[in-house]
Every structure is written in structure tokens, then in C-alpha cells.
Nucleic acid binder design. Structure first.
Length: 557
RNA sequence: GGCCCCAUCGUCUAACGGUUAGGACAUCAGAUUCUCAAUCUGGCAAUACGGGUUCGAUUCCCGUUGGGGUCACCA
């Protein structure tokens, strides 16, 4: 292509924007001075409205790899598609990553500020950089203008399908790949718009080897697709492929960790970096977290539309302890994590020695909420009481104001309530997430009890005649003495049970079922339901000790 | 459909070519008797299939089947 025509294309392309030279850019982004073996990783979400749990997973791995090697973990916002961008999404990304403690060393911080010398870390603010390299490709004959219309492209694809050929813009199907200057000038004169395409160098029947830290050496067909480099939507922004190569080169990333779905496009990225004289990247394609489709019973990628679990907001709302979620994710990545962690759930997760090599055989694991809950119960049970109280109150303050107010109205009482059966060797493990708080502790507070728990009492005791309930409560109260210790309390309850027509003698009950209303357990159930509004609770004696005489008597009257 | 990745209990996974194929979660049974959560003890449960190579294959090779991913001016 002659230089005047080339300049004309460049002018059209940049719309008069002045772009720096490659040399200027290189100077601004010098190689990093880092210790031997330090890895520079990057997490690159798109601000499209919600954060995927897979982003948290990959982010966690990026952070671990960088930290453990003494390197740097960057967050880069990939907002080149202005159509899909959602207002406030970047802030959401930064804050949700912050909630998981996956705050980047460079890039957007949870507080909205930005850190790092290799920025900007938002692609739309790096526009001129991409244009520079796009022009470089044009000058090297590795990019060209394509004037094909959407209709022409569609017709080509249909033709390809009819001929059972691979669809795409390549080889002889690349309409503008080898056009003469005259053709281009004519199109330009006619006022036609064009798009800048990459001129591929590969051949589909030849192979290229990609080096992947997780999958090893992967052989893929070479790239022969002439993909668009700069969008023609007026934004002058690049497509992902150009952006990835330019950014990760300039930001001096040492390992590209990204979801496995990117594997098929790595030959293209290799082709582009080769054309730009950039050394091929080292990759680590991470497994995609999947779910079992209820209809087909097949495994599939978590999707936003069908699976609420895909959205990080869902996890934050359920409010499992962050540590448990991270532990679960770490366990998916490294199978030896489980043993390490179960020795002591109070260990600092940062002390676990994560290894990319152990991810090698992993294949898109299925999300298992039950295992997560198990981790969560352990984490919560092992948590120091003060920390537990703080978390419960923090959750209720935001999500259950009435309960929060009730808890704060009597802090000493609340302290006792939250500590129920948590001390000692075998702490209770019935709280798996902070959102369990209302169900677990609500009935201790009179207003909450009468509003949310008392209405269930009749239903829970629907199999017991009203007069039996009444007599049972009366008898229990007569024998009840709040200063009793547990043994005496139990004795008293047995007495009350017998007086009310129940027995604790299983054999007697079995021999003459009609003689009794039921077993001691049935009697206790009446008392439990009347006091708590629930069929299942912690130890009744412990509950009564905390509630105090007035409350217990009040509920049994 | 082309290309790529993957294949061990229901799930996540472990096993220098030689193990009674191990663990965790889930599940089931028993123990603990005021219920539940838990805890303890025990049980059920897997190498997709077919060929090779080998004294010997979960492990290496080939094929079949199955699952996943990808084939956009989305990332």
C-alpha cells in the first residue's frame, strides 16, 4: 500500500486523534523490576452489571500466585464494548472484590481510587495505545481496511454453511485481504466505511503449540481468521484480542490467567503478538465452575439468567462467612487444601501454599453448596465469640432492623443469647450463614417472638389436645425453679411430665400406649414450642436460663 | 458440524505401571435420650466401554461413547 493511501486510512481510523509513537509508549511502560520468579497477574472483568463467581475464583488465584511469588496482581476493567457497559458496574466489581479481600495491588480499589504505575487500568482510557499498535500493524502490512458490509459478510457465512465449510473471514473468504490500492481508493471515494482487520499469518491445517501452566502443551490449529482490530461503532476502541495483547505486553504481565473458554482463541493471540514482535505469553487457563442443569441433568457453565449462584451478589446476600467461601473455592483449586484447612478452621487462609500444578487435572467442577455449608459451619463454630457477635450484629443491622434493635436494646442479654452452646469442646454448628440469625435467635426477643414465632405454635402442636397443652404448661410451671441446676431442672420436668400423664419409661409406654399422652420427649416438645415457637432448638434448659424466669413464665401462661 | 479440553463413589478428588482403589461432602445405620444442630462408631458407594503395550494398566497408546468449551465489530 502506498504511503499516501496508508496515511489516509490512518486519518480515517483515528478521526484526527493524535496517537503516541511506539517508542514513547515503550518508555512509559518499562519492564518491571521484580525479584526472580515473581509473577505479574491480572484479573480482567467487564463492567456488564454483575460480578460472576468465576471472577472471584480466578481473582483469588491471581492474587495467590502474585503474592506467593512476590509479584503483582492487577485489576483491569475491560470496557471496550460500550453497548454492554452498565452504569456503576466498575464500582460494583471493585467493592465486591473488596468484600472478598481480593483487593488488587494495581488498578481500581474498593474505595474508588486507583493505584499503580502501569495505568490507566481501564481500557477505554487507553484508546490511543491500541490505535498506535493498530497503525503499527497497518504499516507492517499486518492489518488492512475491510469495506465489506454486514450483508456481504452474512451472505458469505451462509455460502460457507451451504458448502459445509468453516464459517468466518479467512482465506479466499476474506474479501478485502489482498485488494489493490485502487480498489481501496475507489471504496474510500465512494464514502464507504471500513473496519481495520488483522492480516493473519497462519494456516488452519498447521498447528501451533500453546504453553499452559495448567494444561501443559496444547496443540491447536493456527489462526487464519482476519479478525477486526478496532471497532467501527465510533468508539475507536479495540476488540478484546488486540487489547489483550497490547495491555498485557505493556503492563508486563508474566502469566495470563483466564477462564478456560479462552483456550480456543489463544492461537489468534499468538498470531497478533508475533506480528507485533511481542514474545508469546505464558497462559494458565482455569476451570469453569459449573452446575447441574435441572432439566437436562447435564453439566453446564453457570449462567446469569438461569442460576442465581452465578452472581456474587447472591453469595453476599446469603452471607456465608467470606472465609468459608474462599476456603471452598481454594479447595476446588487444590485438593490438598481440605486436609490442611480441617486441622484448624481458624488458620489464616493466606498461609496455605497454593499450587497451580495441582489444578492440572481439574475439570469444570460442579458447585456443591452443601460442602460450602459444611465449611461455613466449621468456620463459624471455630470463630471467637466476639467476632461472631460482631458479624451477627453487622448482618442484622442491614438486613433485619427490628431484630437488630431488639438485640441492641439489651446488649447483656444478647451477649448471652449469641453465646448459647457455643463454648466448650463441641460448639453448636447450626449457623452456616449470617442470614440464619433471625431464625436462630429471633425468638429470644419478645417482640420478634410474638410477631414471627408465636403464630406457628398452634400448627406445631396441632396433634395435641388444647387441655393437655394447658395442663402440661401449668404443671411445668409449678415444678419450675429458675435457680435449679440442669439435673434438678430435668428432674422437675420429669415430675411435671408424669403428673401431666406422660412417662419417661419407654417400655411402659410401649406396653400400654393408651395409658399415657406420650413420652417425656412429647411433653418437652410442648414446653419447647410454647417457649420458642419452634420444634427444634438448642438445649431447652440453656434457653430458659438465658431467657430468665419472667420470660419463660410469660410464654407458658 | 469443525476444533480443543476432560472422563475414578451422587459430588470434589487421591493413588512412582504392582494399594483390600484412599479421603472429604452428601447419604444410611447405631451410640448419646428434652428436640435439633453437632459429636463418636460403623455401612453403602467409583476406575464409561472396546482394543492394544506389559509378567502386571485407574495409570501408557488407539478407537468408541459421553460431558464440557469454542467457532461475534461480546468479553
Amino acid at each position: 500500500m502506498n504511503t499516501t493511501l496508508q496515511q489516509r486510512i490512518i486519518d480515517e481510523l483515528t478521526k484526527g486523534l493524535t496517537v503516541p509513537s511506539c517508542e514513547e509508549i515503550e518508555q512509559r511502560y518499562p519492564p518491571r523490576e521484580l525479584p526472580e520468579g515473581a509473577e505479574v497477574t491480572r484479573l480482567c472483568p467487564s463492567p456488564t452489571g454483575f460480578v460472576h463467581i468465576g471472577t472471584i475464583f480466578t481473582g483469588l488465584l491471581c492474587q495467590r500466585v502474585a503474592r506467593q511469588s512476590g509479584g503483582v496482581y492487577m485489576l483491569r476493567i475491560e470496557d471496550t464494548d460500550k453497548k454492554r457497559e452498565v452504569e456503576g458496574a466498575r464500582e460494583l466489581i471493585a467493592s465486591q472484590l473488596g468484600a472478598f479481600g481480593i483487593v488488587p495491588d494495581e488498578g481500581l480499589q474498593p474505595d474508588g481510587s486507583s493505584k499503580g504505575d502501569y495505568g490507566p487500568y481501564v481500557q477505554s482510557e487507553r484508546q490511543a495505545l491500541y490505535l498506535t499498535y493498530a497503525i503499527e500493524l497497518l504499516k507492517n502490512g499486518r492489518a488492512y481496511p475491510c469495506f465489506a458490509t454486514a450483508e456481504e459478510l452474512e451472505a458469505a457465512v451462509n455460502d460457507q454453511k451451504a458448502k459445509k465449510q468453516r464459517p468466518g473471514y479467512y482465506g479466499e473468504w476474506a474479501l478485502w485481504r489482498d485488494r489493490s490500492d485502487e480498489d481501496i481508493e475507489t471504496a474510500l471515494e465512494a464514502g464507504k466505511s471500513f473496519i481495520l482487520r488483522f492480516k493473519s499469518s497462519g494456516s488452519h491445517d498447521k498447528r501451533v503449540t500453546i504453553s499452559d501452566r495448567i494444561k501443559g502443551k496444547v496443540e491447536l490449529p493456527q489462526n487464519d481468521l482476519d479478525v477486526p482490530l478496532i471497532k467501527s461503532d465510533g468508539s475507536l476502541l479495540p476488540t478484546y484480542h488486540l487489547a489483550h495483547v497490547v495491555d498485557d505486553y505493556l503492563m508486563r504481565a508474566t502469566i495470563i490467567m483466564r477462564g478456560e473458554e479462552w483456550l480456543p482463541s489463544t492461537p489468534l493471540h499468538a498470531d497478533i503478538s508475533l506480528a507485533l514482535g511481542i514474545k508469546p505469553f505464558k497462559y494458565a487457563h482455569t476451570p469453569v465452575i459449573s452446575i447441574l442443569d435441572k432439566e437436562t441433568q447435564n453439566k453446564r457453565k453457570l449462567s446469569k439468567r438461569k442460576d442465581p449462584e452465578a452472581d456474587v451478589a447472591f453469595w453476599l446476600q446469603k452471607a456465608h462467612p467470606i472465609k468459608a467461601v474462599k476456603a471452598y473455592l481454594l479447595g476446588l483449586a487444590n485438593s490438598n487444601f481440605d486436609d490442611w484447612f480441617r486441622e484448624d478452621p481458624n488458620k489464616d487462609l493466606d498461609d496455605f501454599e497454593f499450587s497451580l500444578d495441582k489444578l492440572k487435572t481439574s475439570r469444570s467442577p460442579l458447585l456443591d453448596m452443601r460442602k460450602l455449608e459444611d465449611y461455613a459451619k466449621d468456620v463459624i463454630a471455630a470463630m471467637p465469640q466476639e467476632h461472631f457477635n460482631k458479624q451477627i450484629l453487622a448482618w442484622t443491622e442491614v438486613h433485619d432492623k427490628p431484630l437488630f434493635d431488639a438485640m441492641m436494646a439489651d446488649p447483656e442479654y444478647t451477649k448471652d443469647v449469641l453465646a448459647i452452646e457455643r463454648g466448650g469442646e463441641k460448639p453448636r454448628k447450626d449457623v452456616a450463614k449470617w442470614s440464619d440469625a433471625p431464625e436462630q435467635f429471633g425468638y429470644f426477643y419478645d417482640e420478634i417472638f410474638s410477631e414471627r414465632f408465636a403464630p406457628a405454635i398452634d400448627e406445631l402442636l396441632s396433634d395435641v389436645p388444647a387441655d393437655v397443652i394447658e395442663v402440661s404448661c401449668k404443671n411445668f410451671l409449678e415444678s419450675y425453679n429458675p435457680s435449679h441446676n440442669k439435673d434438678k431442672w430435668l428432674e422437675a420436668m420429669k415430675t411435671a411430665a408424669v403428673t401431666s400423664g406422660y412417662t419417661f419409661d419407654r417400655k411402659a409406654l410401649k406396653a400400654n400406649p393408651e395409658q399415657f399422652h406420650g413420652h417425656l420427649a412429647d411433653f418437652a416438645r410442648i414446653i419447647r414450642v410454647k417457649v420458642t415457637g419452634k420444634a427444634n432448638t438448642p438445649d431447652l434448659y440453656a434457653i430458659m436460663q438465658i431467657m430468665g424466669e419472667q420470660r419463660v413464665v410469660g410464654r407458658l401462661k
